[in-house]
Amino acid sequence: MTIHNPNFVLMVEDLTVSFDGFKAVNDLSFYVEPNECRVIIGPNGAGKTTVLDLICGRTKATSGSVNFKGQELLKMREDQIVHAGVGRKFQTPSVYEDLTVFENLELSYPQGHGVFGALFFQRDDPVKTRIQEIAETIFLEDHLSEKAAYLSHGQKQWLEIGMLLIQDPELLMLDEPVAGMSVAERKKTAELLNRIINDRSVIVIEHDMGFVADIATRVTVLHQGKTLSEGSMERVQNDPKVIEVYLGH
């Protein structure tokens, strides 16, 4: 158990997960500061998504510690981790296709999370106002009554980001938010992310180096489940080890 250091929102220490002997994440440590935008890059199979899975409780760690504002996340259930203030966006857009954009956002509104809370949940004005607000942020204010299934790929990504924003998490984790987007959508997403990362900590996994340079405060390069290099974008880009295993290709 690590002691909480108020300089960091998230402290990952000696994190290891082993799948039948294969260590997808191996003795990994890193620290995220308040309001920092940390980008994790690395070749395929480096364990990037697994790290996010471990933090949000989707995968159980073999050993190590994930400390979020003094709480040990490895001992908590997924929904408890969400309530602690950690939001996670998946790599493929995970939205509720059979529901409208409005309903998608409403289900993510941080209220009525118990069975009876959900049963007697009232769609009152604060809820509607907040949904409207978020919809404007994610460029979907004209699509509120549309089914999510009819959105384009990029719009689904934005919707999922919106579903996280409405929870107002202190730590936001995004797995390849611009993958599969057109150039125009990418630009808009970068603008969106730059706006929403101001007052929270963010961990982003991304391959697009231009995009990374745009948003990153600091970059962590993963390789075979371990940190290969860490620091500013410039430093990482000039690190010979990084060039050899990742950027050189």
């Binding site: 989707r58 998946f90 995970s94 409403e106 289900l107 959900a118 007697f120 949940f121």
Partner: peptide, 23 residues
């Protein structure tokens, strides 16, 4: 109710519901 919409959401994207803070 919202619970009804949650059921549909769970049917299609159980993980998304779980990681939106629902047990």
């Amino acid at each position: 109710s919202k619970l009804g919409r949650l059921l549909i959401a769970m049917r299609d994207q159980e993980d998304r519901v779980r990681f939106s803070g629902y047990d």
